[in-house]
């Protein structure tokens, strides 16, 4: 039977009520490891340059550059660690929601009926920590695709199965 009740906007399910679930703490280790690898490469490049380069100008600015990089490194690491707490997700009956970002916070939602395909990807480090990234794709290139990092592998598989079951069921 067809009904056309007026919708009370106040009673709609709202994102304010969602209890988000944080991602695995182990993923912070991966982030820190990646960052430290990047910065140690940068620092070693700088130090090698200190001994190799003979141009006087370079040595004049060397310490400024070094301290600049140290400053950037500290700020970056602090922000990344703080931003880690912002990475959280929720799965509702009808959609998947992922929130991230400290400086620019974003809350993305993909309705389950709009999912085109799902993908679980695991980097080498992620395999060592038994983690996985769940990617959720919608149609079109311009779409907002979700990529939830740092899920427990079992959990990722579980979500993947649940979602693909629902997607195939609705089709």
């Amino acid at each position: 039977m067809f009904t056309n009740q007026q919708i009370d906007l106040e009673t709609l399910p709202t994102i304010d009520d969602i209890v988000f679930k944080p991602i695995s703490k182990r993923y912070l280790k991966i982030i820190v490891l990646n960052r430290s690898l990047f910065y140690s490469l940068l620092f070693s490049a700088l130090i090698i340059a200190k001994f190799m380069v003979e141009a006087v100008n370079f040595h004049l600015v060397f310490w400024y550059v070094l301290w600049g990089v140290v400053l950037v490194c500290i700020i970056d690491v602090v922000i990344t660690v703080l931003a880690f707490k912002k990475r959280k997700y929720a799965i509702r009956e009808q959609d998947v929601i992922y929130s991230k970002g400290l400086l620019v916070n974003s809350i993305s939602a993909v309705p389950i009926s709009r999912i085109q395909h799902l993908e679980i990807s695991r980097s080498w480090l992620a395999r060592k920590f038994n983690l996985a990234t769940l990617k959720i794709f919608t149609a079109g290139e311009s779409g907002i695709d979700l990529s939830i990092d740092g899920l427990n592998y079992d959990e990722a598989k579980q979500i993947n199965d649940f979602l693909s079951g629902k997607v195939n069921g609705t089709n």
Binding site: V104, N105, I107, A109, V110, R114, S142
Partner: peptide, 23 residues
């Protein structure tokens, strides 16, 4: 296809946000 709410740390203080909508 999907919806996204974006807000920078400065916008948060001023209670401002943008909505991105993808077809």
């Amino acid at each position: 296809q999907s919806v996204e709410l974006k807000q920078s740390i400065f916008q948060k203080q001023k209670n401002i946000a943008s909505v991105y909508i993808a077809t």
